[in-house]
């Protein structure tokens, strides 16, 4: 039985061991590189190289169909004065805040509910269903369901005596609507990630809490949350970065409108690159966004201390 519990106990013995091993840090270099080799190959070929190329292109005037011409920092100078870029950035931020805020709370609730209530694979499977459907189709289904005149949701609202809402059509509701549609697609997926984290919390901790007569609420805040921190950091970093990349839903529903209310940053970059063939400028936008995202990710990791859980 002691063996059985051990693998579930994170980092309890890690720190002394780490100290012991600090001096041997070089010793692992060769095996580390060997273990990294395949992934590093994929990373360099399919990520780093295109990224470097994009970085280079951001200093050029490149129309995709003719060779790039070096223009120095001109693209970046233009980005700074580009009103639509800043607007698209605020729109994206609004989206991320709503999307991540709601999604994290709902997914966490779902994961904890599943963890504490039932181990039914069926329920977990059902919650993962939306993730099985392509983004574009999810967007289209909700687009028809939420229509102001013919949508089933508005028929429902009318039944209870409410006025129809043009969810995707109003400048004020379009972004929240898109954010919530994507919460629908990702909440089960996010819940599953969190759920995987919950399962790595040793059941002995809950047993102890139960013996002390702690309420579910108290157990959640005092045990679950602190122990879940590494996984929550993971989930937050991943979902926040993913959330910034919102594109498909906008592309098939509002196309950036009405007015500029849903022109999110990726959609703006896409328009510049593939509709206006201003690839150099789009690359510069991309680099700026990259810097912002890297900053956000670094801050998240630092603030939430990704490596540690409080199980000591």
């Amino acid at each position: 039985m002691s063996v059985a519990v051990a693998p579930q106990q994170p980092s309890a013995t890690e720190r002394p061991a780490a100290r012991l091993r600090a001096g041997r840090s070089r010793q692992d270099l060769v095996p580390a590189l060997l273990f990294l080799l395949p992934a590093a190959f994929g990373f360099v070929t399919f990520y780093a190289w295109p990224a470097l190329r994009t970085f280079y292109l951001s200093f050029t005037d490149y129309s995709l169909l003719a060779p790039p011409e070096w223009v120095g920092v001109q693209n970046y100078a233009e980005v700074l004065g580009d009103r639509r870029f800043w607007k698209s950035l605020t729109v994206t931020l609004e989206y991320v805040v709503i999307n991540i805020g709601v999604q994290t709370v709902v997914a966490l609730a779902l994961a904890v509910l599943m963890h504490r209530l039932t181990k039914s694979t069926l329920i977990r499977g059902v919650l993962l269903l939306p993730y099985l459907v392509a983004n574009v189709v999810v967007a289209l289904v909700w687009y028809t369901m939420l229509d102001a005149q013919l949508g089933i949701v508005n028929s429902g609202l009318e039944l209870v005596g409410l006025d129809p809402v043009a969810f995707f059509g109003e400048t004020s509701t379009a972004i929240p609507t898109i954010a919530l549609v994507n919460v629908w697609r990702h909440m089960g997926y996010t819940a599953l990630l969190i759920f995987a984290g919950l399962q790595s919390i040793p059941s002995s901790v809950y047993e102890a809490a139960a013996i002390d007569g702690a309420s579910e609420w108290r157990i959640f805040w005092r045990i679950t949350m602190p122990l879940l921190r590494p996984v929550l950091v993971l989930v937050l970093v991943l979902t926040v970065i993913g959330s910034f990349q919102i594109f498909d839903t906008v592309a098939v529903t509002t196309k950036g409108g009405p007015i500029d209310s849903t022109r999110v940053i990726y959609y703006y970059i896409y328009e510049k690159a593939f509709q206006q063939f201003d690839f150099g400028y789009a690359a510069a936008l991309c680099v700026v966004l990259f810097v912002i995202l890297a900053g956000v990710a670094l801050a998240q990791v630092k603030i939430l201390r990704a490596g540690d859980s409080d199980l000591d």
Partner: peptide, 14 residues
């Protein structure tokens, strides 16, 4: 961290 930043490269650029 370099690996992590690869998350932030938009697919349209790769």
């Amino acid at each position: 961290f370099a690996f992590l930043t690869a998350l932030m490269i938009p697919p349209i650029f790769t």
